[in-house]
Nucleic acid binder design. Structure first.
Lengths: 339, 339
DNA sequence: TTGTAAGCGTTATCAA
DNA sequence: TTGATAACGCTTACAA
């Protein structure tokens, strides 16, 4: 009676084959490419699959075929809505082609990234998506040996591993700084996250400096600040920069939700924005538009990066392309009341 | 010279074994339990592993040992900081024990969840973490047959699949509604996300009704509203409920960032909070504390749910426990200026 | 259209 | 402590 798995509930292709009176090979074909099997046999197999509650073992399948449906994604911090916008887009594209997404976060360090790359390659991922653009030599060696396609999505690196889909952090920071200069601000401060081990933050600082030079504004070391992420951080910084002996007239918060914390602190203190100080932000979070005043910011293609990144990775995984593409996506400045 | 992989770069355990002059079994032991191998041989093997840049193939390892290091997590929406707090905590715990996390989102529907559960089981995950508490019969059947441990984390279901780590949405909504009643509000509105296919929202609505009954407040269907997520949604709703013929005197936004959108709309319109209307929220986002006034809300154990959930799952995966535990974590009300 | 045989790269088992 | 052999559950390659 109960051919349906021997107590353990474990059903293998063999069992389905026996039930349908065919060989495992025929079952395999019926599942992966039904057109290769006669209608009659196909129906018997489907019935057996249903009856047994059979689920194919992809571990065995991938091992045998040397093809995997796993893609690894490494971001600096899962717990951050900026990254999750991208993650969501990647995940949608991959699912539609039957791939599975493995996600890990590496903090902002390339050492931890190395361990994760090793773990993912050991799982035989078909491809990798990396947010950081800084990697250890060993990471590079492992990726080269494994021969899997890689997309870097957090920045436009000078020396890419393989493919790239991103915007330019340098250009974005430069554009916003020039925008502030054009609006007439002369003492423009830059607040970023800690730059150590973070190529994106470094590029933003460089972009800011480039813009100051172009606008013929003097660079004041007092006006370049690194802070940990968070609303409190932004609040603290705006107070410090506005109450300094030589105060900033505009502050460009190039990271996280620092600008929001700053604006809310100004509200609490009754400081007019931009009367007392102008505030600009980096990422166009939905919130920026709802605050009073709305915060001037950059619209970055977070979702599109995820989508295009996943797409060109799949093109390579599925052999539709062999190019090492580099896609530079656009950003734009959203001018609002805060500047 | 170049024994280091035959051009393709693919190095198998066999190759390492040959280089070290031992059998593959000895290499396998040296990697998984070095104490079982003599020091001298171990060193030769380590040297060969380094020289060859060998990465073990976990697909083969898992297939052979019938053990997997993969854990599947299914949330309603990756792109939501509430879930990402939990995801982060899960991910940390799993990494520390050498497990990999596969993440997918199922919208709020159990049909899509079913497909994902199937995909994860096909990958031979060692365990599953599910945020939704509503599942199809087929999902339940697959999980039972596969025999993998499962933790549900989004709610306390009446009929759990296996283990549960969560707070009670019913009790949380009830507690906040009673809190508002005790503060003297008499026309308390409830705004939730769409309740269809969402056991958490349904429980919140039930908890609200239970509290109204306890507080002997009449239930007004006009005061129970379902809205899509988002700041705009909250803004729109507060306007509607305050300008109604019989306006609400307090609004409990039981979902997403609706309360933030509402408070910001009140700021824009110059409505005093709580003078014109009181506002309470569900999740204690960092922002709630920074707004003026601060928003009264519930402190929910988002991170602890992830941590404990992952821990008890690992206890079962690693055979340290066989219990079907249900953990009811605490929440608490954070009273602030908005009520 | 279907089946047979030989792997895929590792680990369990048992023997030396 | 080490090794030989046989799985693990599937797919590739080839034969019928």
């Amino acid at each position: 009676m109960s051919e349906t798995g021997k107590a353990s509930g474990l059903v293998r292709m063999r069992d389905v084959a026996r039930m349908a009176g065919v060989s495992t090979m025929t079952v395999s074909r019926a599942l992966s490419d039904p057109s290769k099997v006669s209608v009659e046999v196909r129906e018997r197999i489907n019935a057996a699959v249903q009856a047994a509650g059979y689920l194919p073992n992809r571990l065995a399948g991938s091992l045998s075929s040397r093809r995997s449906t796993l893609v690894g994604l490494i971001v600096p911090n899962i717990d951050n809505s900026l990254y999750s916008t991208t993650i969501k887009a990647v995940s949608e594209v991959l699912r539609q082609s039957g791939h599975q997404l493995m996600i890990a976060d590496c903090g902002y360090g390339s050492q931890k990234e190395e361990a994760l790359i090793g773990a993912f390659l050991a799982q035989q991922v078909a491809g990798l998506i990396l947010h950081n653009a800084t990697h250890t030599d060993h990471s590079r060696a492992m990726i080269r040996r494994a021969g899997v396609p890689v997309v870097e999505i957090g920045n436009l690196p000078a020396d890419p591993l393989d493919m790239v889909v991103s915007y330019s952090n340098h250009e974005a920071a430069r554009a916003m700084t020039l925008h502030l200069a054009r609006l007439g601000y002369r003492r423009i401060a830059l607040v970023t996250l800690p730059a150590r081990d973070n190529d994106r933050t470094l590029d933003r600082q460089r972009g800011y400096r480039a813009a100051l030079a172009e606008a013929r504004l003097a660079e004041d070391p007092q006006l370049v600040v690194e802070m940990p992420p968070g609303l409190d951080s932004g609040a603290e910084t705006v107070a410090r920069l506005v109450e300094a002996d030589a105060p900033a007239d505009a502050i460009f918060f190039a990271g996280d939700v620092l600008a929001v914390g700053a604006l809310l602190e100004c509200q609490r203190r009754g400081w007019a924005v931009p009367g007392r100080v102008a505030i600009a932000a980096f990422d166009n979070l939905e919130l920026m538009r709802h605050l009073m005043p709305g915060i001037t910011t950059l619209r970055l293609p977070r979702a599109e990066i995820g989508r295009r990144g996943a797409e060109i990775l799949l093109d390579r995984i599925q052999g539709r392309s062999t190019e090492r593409r580099a896609v530079d996506l656009r950003f734009e400045i959203v001018q609002r009341g805060s500047t």
